[in-house]
Amino acid sequence: MANKLIVSLSPHVHSGDSVQKNMYWVCIALIPALLCSFISFGVGAIITTAISVAACVFFEWAINKFMLKNPKCTVCDGSAILTGILLAFNMPSNIQPWIIIVGALFAIGVVKMTFGGLGCNLFNPALAGRAFLLISFPVDMTTWPNPGQGFGTYLDAETGATPLALAKQLFKTTGAQHEEALRQITSLEWSDMFFGNRGGCLGEVCAAALILGLIILLVKKVITWHIPVSIIATVAVLSSILYVSNPTAYASAPVELLSGGLFLGAIFMATDYVTSPMSPKGQLVYGVAIGVLTVIIRTYGAYPEGMSFAILIMNAFVPLINNKFKPKRFGEVPAKK
């Protein structure tokens, strides 16, 4: 017996945390938003998500097996499922299935697997996939269905302008068009926007569900508060300043916060482990920068939504941020009293 003892170095116990657990908890935290999307946009939301998940998982499995010849299956870690859900959440629910599949191929094949798979990619695969589609299929990607057309709605959905597009018109146009945008934007109902009764990407419309997701992630200690809070606070402060400076040219802070993919981005996309900074300080810097870039792109850029580009831009700066912003070392925290 004694000669069979296992000898290894400490620590001899483990928390029991695993990659799967974290990935699956993020998926679970996204379920409320998916349900809300189903209520707003009908079955299209579910179909789009299912196609996207299936495509992402398939591409990861196939690349791993046939191109990388990796005997170990990496699909089970849940990261491809998560990428699939997030990719779908960043599209309109009435998008053509083949576009989804192209996006999934780009996200998994190009952005994730060519860099070495989970843990090695520089950019958030789902967001890069969305950006690729937005550039390749600008019309399909920006024709958003109107909410409340019944549960059977899919490709046949009627489409309309989203609040964020109105905000853009507010800034870019003059005369009658401007007046019309102003009238529509001031008539927006707070509660509609908060509970998802508005046009937009599949997963972004219901702020309430996304905040519920945030609470799940924080309670299960999947993420820390630093990134979501810093992004949301930055956008709130900046857009308030702009609005106060000229209420007829800019949308108010609640509209900015609730209208686009801000909550989805801040809570689920910017917090992607692989592509966000490691130290709390670095995460705050990253979050504030994303907030600033989002407001700039939304207000002055060509696209109405700036969130995903802001995150992708900051993804590129993560190695630099990690180098520059170190955690507070022991000994640096000043004495109390």
């Binding site: 990659v19 974290n22 798979g117 989970l118 482990y273 490691m278 170190k326």
Partner: peptide, 16 residues
């Protein structure tokens, strides 16, 4: 498994 850069070790380290 490969590091997923979740920063949990950074948060756990008592020496910063």
């Amino acid at each position: 498994l490969p590091c997923i850069r979740c920063a949990k070790c950074v948060g756990a380290c008592p020496m910063g």
